Amino acid sequence: MSDIKQIRNKKLLPDLRKEGELRKEIVLSTNEKHGVPTGSRLFSHHTLASIRRLSFFYPFHLPDDSLDLILSATYNHSTEKFADKEDLHLQPETHGCDTWRRLRNTYDKHPPVVVPLGHPMKRGGITEHRSPFSVKLMNSGVHSSQTNPGYSRQPAGGAIFFY
């Protein structure tokens, strides 16, 4: 979360993909913000609240009542002794935690992925190839190929020795 920067969204529509979905296309009279009549610009520009109030915006996570808001709060009664009344209602996004709600008209800018050695080639390769037939389970079958305990074949001579 600390590496992700929140940058102000200068577009006409806010980005609410994490909050809900629009079941219908929003009709905009213009796609420009500058050099157009004021009424056209105000009709096309939406805020977070105006998008949430649209009849065809369906949120994913909507609290049912005040109990859901209190349960999702960051207040913990076992650690805080004398908390204020507003501490019961403070939500995680108020403290800066990443949740499904968006408080400001911003979008997240992720840092560029650092590629080691400057190219995407991997160093190394397959270190171990496990065979599915070498797995010893609790209930092994009668046809499993295992040597008797204590017997082994020597790589040099080829004879079977008992140790």
Rank of each mutant, 00 (worst) to 15 (best):
I7N: 02
K10F: 15
P14M: 00
P14N: 00
R17T: 13
R17S: 13
K18P: 08
E19G: 05
E19A: 04
R23Q: 08
E25F: 02
L28Q: 06
N31R: 09
K33E: 07
P37Q: 12
T38R: 11
S40V: 15
S40K: 14
F43W: 01
S44I: 08
H45F: 14
H46Y: 06
T47D: 08
L48T: 02
S50R: 08
F56V: 02
F57L: 07
Y58S: 09
L62A: 13
P63L: 06
D68K: 13
I70E: 03
L71D: 01
T74I: 03
S78T: 14
T79G: 01
A83Y: 02
D84R: 04
E86V: 04
P92T: 00
E93H: 13
T94F: 00
D98M: 10
W100Q: 08
R101S: 02
R104D: 07
N105W: 01
T106W: 03
Y107Q: 05
Y107P: 06
V113I: 15
V115T: 01
G118T: 01
G118E: 04
H119F: 13
H129Y: 13
R130C: 01
P132H: 12
K136C: 04
K136M: 01
L137Q: 12
L137W: 02
G141S: 01
V142G: 02
V142A: 11
H143Y: 15
Q146E: 14
G150V: 05
A159D: 05
A159H: 10
